[in-house]
């Protein structure tokens, strides 16, 4: 499980998400702008849900199936995943 306690955890998650998106889009990670909508890159439907599954597995959390649509950029995902992880791992 990735911890968000450290300030660089968000950067680490952003880097990992960018790498996963690049795999699905079959392009170099350097071409992915974290502020741009994933749908604009062509990451839609099944691939977006597959990314959601990757996130659930890596962070050991459950997400609403519409999470990726509700948070359409990598930056947006990182910001909201911080909250989601904190909530779901509260004692």
């Amino acid at each position: 499980m990735t911890s968000f306690a450290a300030g660089d955890a968000a950067a680490s998650l952003r880097s990992w998400l960018t790498a996963r998106v690049a795999v699905y889009l079959d392009c170099p990670p350097g071409q992915i702008d974290p502020a741009r909508s994933l749908a604009e890159y062509g990451l839609h439907s099944v691939l977006a849900l597959a990314l959601g599954a990757d996130i659930e597995d890596r962070l050991c959390i459950g997400l609403e199936p519409t999470f990726i649509w509700d948070h359409p950029t990598i930056d947006d995902l990182v910001a909201h995943l911080s909250d989601a992880v904190a909530k779901q791992h509260q004692p």
Binding site: V46, L47, L49, A50, G52, A53, P65
Partner: peptide, 10 residues
């Protein structure tokens, strides 16, 4: 494989 994973999971 990605289809199967998503079809089953979501």
């Amino acid at each position: 494989p990605t289809d199967v994973r998503v079809f089953q999971r979501y």
